[in-house]
Amino acid sequence: MTPEEPFAVLGLEPTMDPLAVKSAYFAALSRHPPHQDMEGFQRLRRAYEALTRPGGLAAAYLTSPVDVQKLAREARERFDAPLEKAAVVARAERTRAETVAQWVERCSRMSWDEALRAFAR
C-alpha cells in the first residue's frame, strides 16, 4: 500500500520550508484534535513525522506529485513553434539533398551514350 502523501495530509503544497510544514501541522491539528478524531490526528502525526525526520522533508518534496501537464504545456508553448519552423526548413533542405542524391545516383550509373540519349532534345 502506498503511504499517503504527507504534504496532502497537511493540506500543503509541496515545499522545502520547514516552518510552513510546522504551521500547516498546527493548523490541521485544530481541525483534527486527538480527543475528537483520533484517526485523523494519527494521520496528521504520521505525515508530520515523515516530514520532520532527518532528510524527510527533502525526500517528501522530491517524491511529491508534480504537475507534469503544466510542464508539458509550457514546454510545448516554448518549443513547438520553433521546432515546426525548423522542421519545415529541414524538410525542404532534406528534399533538396535527396533530389541531388537521386540525380547523382541515377546519372552516374549511366554510360555517356545512355546519358546523351536520355537527355537528347
Binding site: F79, P82, L83, E84, K85, A86, A87, V89, A90, R91
Partner: peptide
C-alpha cells in the same frame, strides 16, 4: 539552434 531543432523535429 537551427540544426538541433531540425534534428529533434525530424
Amino acid at each position: 539552434e537551427g540544426a538541433l531543432l531540425a534534428l529533434c523535429a525530424l
